[in-house]
Design a binder for these strands. Structure first.
Lengths: 228, 228
DNA sequence: GTATACATACATTCGCGTATGTATGTTCGA
DNA sequence: TCGAACATACATACGCGAATGTATGTATAC
């Protein structure tokens, strides 16, 4: 088979990435040979080595396809939340983070691979880099929101803004862990609202409780993932 | 080197397991060859193959060294908690689960390996088996405690016992995730009390809040891990 | 015609499993 | 009690498959 058109080439690239996602999710990154990926994508290893330098670069491209900076989400949300209250913003950030597990299969697959199907070893590994990038990105946004909340005096007296941030991060990370590792008992396609509220309730002081009982529930549209 | 005494042999076995822990934590399970482990343990691959059938069995033995069923912890705790209140029991279970991260280096290393340094693939894999065993074990204990708490009417009206159990599991799993994956920002050797209380506060109804503000803080001794 | 988009073929490496060698502890009969 | 026979606890050596990376072939789009 000789040279193909540009569009076909780009399509081949996507097909390879799709195949890599599926194979790596099933067998793990190191246990998935480039040959297996090629077979599923109906190409040969030559095609893979044409589009990607090596396995590492392939993984890198795979995770790059789905990386949506949380900063963008905050930007988007803050334009839709009335009054820009940090507590509601935080609440929506948490909900959207969890709901993406249920309605974005690609994000779910890539997170699954990066979290549980990949041995993180040396620095600079694409999976590790993605995890740290997402984590740091989320932590920055959440930490700033928690600081604002603390400033407003909404936080429980025993908790620092840092504590609250840690709790929120652990809350989301923990549910990601449960849903991805134990899908047979933990389903992602559920109403996360009550759980998010319960988590926040524990972080706030008593007078804030009333606020959290009534749900603002503004409908918000997802921002498009930036492809570059 | 010829035959060694029984005690020396057992010592060799432990040395190999120690070396495997360190190497696998540093480089990941599949990236750690038996040769590397042998070198660190100052033996040859022959010694490893004498003590263990293969790499899988080695991993299995490694995780078996640190597996402490949560049921035992509950047994132990329930004898020390005055009145056997399920809420305090739950609180202590959560605290001990998190504190073990700080004061049991071996548990910490093995959890790190099993959670982040191992590609879980086929069923029956020792790492996957351990994860599921620990998870199911913990879920059973926590679920029963949540049921008791629900029976007592302490739970928030919007939450089922199952919801509460999910929250507690995610809370612990999430902090494990944060501490093990991002040790530079999340330290395990801290006072988990306020965070545990915050998590529980969100799950309980208003009248229960007062109970959670005063700390029972009974000193409890760890149960010995059963070696068999 | 030429760069492209692959397929094919080949060399090399690497880790695993096993077969075998060997020196020493252990046991048991005389 | 003492030494031979056996079992043990490794070390060494070898064969194998599998995966990687690269070099080269080739047909087609531009």
């Amino acid at each position: 088979m000789g040279r193909r058109t540009k569009d076909e080439s780009a399509q081949t690239r996507e097909t390879i990435l799709d195949a890599a996602e599926i194979e790596m999710q099933a067998r793990g990154v190191s246990q998935t040979s480039l040959n297996r990926i090629a077979q599923r994508a109906q190409v040969t290893r030559g095609a893979i080595y044409w589009h990607f330098a090596d396995k590492r670069a392939l993984l890198e491209a795979m995770v790059a396809r789905t990386h949506l900076p949380l900063r963008d989400l905050r930007q988007c949300l803050s334009q839709h939340i009335p009054g820009n209250e940090p507590l509601w913003l935080l609440r929506e950030v948490m909900r959207h983070g969890l709901e993406r597990l249920g309605n974005d299969p690609r994000h779910r697959r890539v997170c699954h691979i990066v979290m549980h199907r990949c041995e993180v070893t040396d620095e600079g590994h694409p999976a590790d880099a993605l995890m740290r990038a997402m984590f740091e990105d989320a932590r920055e946004v959440i930490m700033s929101l928690c600081n604002e909340i603390k400033q407003l005096g909404l936080l429980h007296s025993q908790l620092s803004a840092r504590d609250a941030s840690d709790m929120v991060m652990a809350f989301v990370a923990g549910h990601y862990e449960c849903v991805l590792r134990h899908p047979e008992t933990h389903v992602a396609d559920r109403d996360w609202g009550p759980l998010v509220d319960a988590a926040l309730r524990g972080l706030m002081n008593d007078p804030t409780q009333a606020m959290l009982t009534r749900a603002p529930a503004a409908e918000i549209q997802e921002p498009e993932p930036a492809d570059h």
